[in-house]
Simulated assay, not measured.
Amino acid sequence: MNRNAPIKDVLAIVDGWPSSMSAVDQALAYAGQYEATLTVIVITENLSLAAAIDPMAYAQVLTVSDQQQSEHLAAVRERAKNAAIHVEVRGLFEATTLLPGLTKAEGQYADVALIPGADRWQNDGLRRHITEALIFAGVPTLVMPATWKPSPARHVALGWNASLEAFRAARAALNLVEPNSQIDVVIVDGLESAKSGQPLTGMHIARHLARHGHNANVHATSSATRGTAGALQFFAAHQNADLLIVGGYGRSRAVEFVLGGVTRELLGNQRLPILFVH
């Protein structure tokens, strides 16, 4: 346990359906490592506005949504009632379009945000929008696969391209990993520099990480067969890294939507825990 890590406030976002309960367990275990306060925000989509033109339908949908929120809040509170750490459970009940912005505001007061990945949300589009909102809030956002069992991070892979987001990701790594950790700095498509004998782009950041007491090495890999997102995940999994850390959204969301991007690919095809830092 890294008791000196500056992790005091952990935020988790779930939708409260049964498929998200394992994410509550993961959040409890993660926050427990740092003896941090855990805030769990249970979001409920207010679908009544879609029926506003029909007073009878509006009232019926509002009643169902209210009941659903109460049930989800009760389920999460029951899950967390025996936690050894301080846990706050709050609900957000709003129109679907407003929920990402509200969760972004919550993220601004957290050291790290946790969010379950695909297959544990009723509305996958909402999952993406909330995850993106948290990333753009500037809070390190850890997307958790269902199979992940939180443990102290002693070996991480850091995706590196010398961007501002990558620098911020490296600083987040210093806060989140254990002392004397293994940090693999991964350069995708940096093979030509390696073959020519020229210093790899990541040598300077590896030296900086080493000065903080970590065992940092630079690795070059190719995107030829898997793409950049696939190459990063394959490397991290092959090296048995506890976590992949990347700078999220080096370009605007609009450009990423039109052209595609590594962040969107990682969010859509995640195979291991990934920490995004913007």
Rank of each mutant, 00 (worst) to 15 (best):
Trp17Asp: 14
Ala23Met: 03
Val24Asp: 00
Asp25Trp: 07
Gly32Asn: 09
Gly32Gln: 09
Val40Pro: 04
Val42Lys: 06
Glu45Asp: 09
Ser48Gly: 10
Leu49Phe: 14
Ile53Glu: 14
Met56Tyr: 13
Leu62Asp: 07
Ser70Tyr: 05
Leu73Val: 08
Ala75Thr: 03
Lys81Ser: 11
His86Phe: 12
Ala95Trp: 08
Thr97Ile: 14
Thr97Leu: 14
Thr103Cys: 15
Lys104Leu: 14
Ala105His: 12
Gln108His: 14
Asp111Leu: 12
Ala118Met: 13
Arg120Lys: 10
Trp121Phe: 08
Gln122Phe: 13
Asn123Leu: 12
Asp124Gly: 09
Leu126Val: 08
His129Gly: 03
His129Glu: 07
Ile135Trp: 07
Ala137Leu: 09
Ala137Lys: 02
Val139Ser: 00
Met144Thr: 06
Pro145Glu: 05
Ala146Val: 11
Ala146Pro: 02
Val156Trp: 06
Gly159Cys: 14
Gly159Ala: 15
Leu164His: 13
Leu164Cys: 11
Arg168Ser: 13
Ala169Met: 12
Ala170Val: 09
Leu174Met: 15
Glu178Met: 14
Asn180Met: 14
Ile183Leu: 13
Asp184Trp: 08
Val185Ile: 09
Val186Asp: 04
Ser193Phe: 05
Ser193Ala: 12
Ser193Gly: 11
Ala194Gln: 09
Ser196Cys: 04
Gly197Val: 04
Gln198Cys: 02
Gln198Trp: 03
Leu200Met: 04
Gly202Ser: 02
Met203Pro: 02
His204Ser: 05
Ala206Glu: 00
His208Phe: 02
Arg211Gln: 03
His212Cys: 01
Ser222Leu: 04
Thr228Tyr: 03
Ala231Gly: 00
Leu232Pro: 01
Phe234Met: 02
Asn240Trp: 02
Leu243Lys: 01
Gly247Ser: 06
Gly247Tyr: 04
Gly248Thr: 03
Phe257Tyr: 12
Thr263Glu: 07
Thr263Lys: 08
Gly268Ser: 10
Ile274Cys: 07
Val277Gln: 05
